[in-house]
Amino acid sequence: MQKLSDSLTNMAVVLTLIAVITGGILAYVNHMTEEPIANVEKQALEEGIKSVMNDPDVVVAQTIDTTMTLPGTDKESAFTIYSINNAEGEKAGVAVSSTTTAFGGDLQVLVGFDNEDNILGYSILKTTETPGLGAKADKWFQKGEKGDIIGKNPNDEAFKVSKDGGEIDAITASTITSRAFLLAVKRGYLAYKTACEPKGPVVSDTTGATKSTPEKETQEKDIKTPKSK
């Protein structure tokens, strides 16, 4: 077969053809994988919530997406707060997803609290940390491990790494990751308190997840952080 010459028509035809074919292939593959991807994400979240609530039968009663500026920073951060009911439809606590910057990027954790604000469990949702380091945090702070945080209240003075005068052992050689992790947990707790507490306990709604975005409310409540410096 003769190689096509470099005429303008040839080039235009070939480029258009390539664009159409690749676009078509990608649209098809995207269509095929759209559902599995959504399922995977949904499942990951459900499993995460079950594991951090330490109970396989919990149901998400309410989902609140909110952004707020917490004391100690001048940046707005996004939080997602899931109000959780147990199998009998009673409030079992909340799970909060919270993000901080750690050693090499964002660290996103999902923390479960019981009704007394004690930590039930946690799970690392996303980390751009050096693999191996961030991965360690997955186990390190679990029950019975060296940095056990289960059952503790993040509002305690001692909820810090031992280097900073707290009572939690940091991951060996990863103080920054450990600090970031504890900060993420604590910020999740603060966000949950700021967003939910004044309204009293969330009314249980077993019909499914309702979405609300109380952005305005949380901003007004957040008078503790003066914006001006």
């Binding site: 100690g72 920073t73 920054i176 600090r179 970031a180 410096k229």
Partner: peptide, 14 residues
């Protein structure tokens, strides 16, 4: 340099 950004964040936030 690691941690410098978090340190700066903390300094300027207070």
């Amino acid at each position: 340099f690691s941690g410098v950004d978090n340190g700066l964040n903390a300094v300027f936030a207070n």
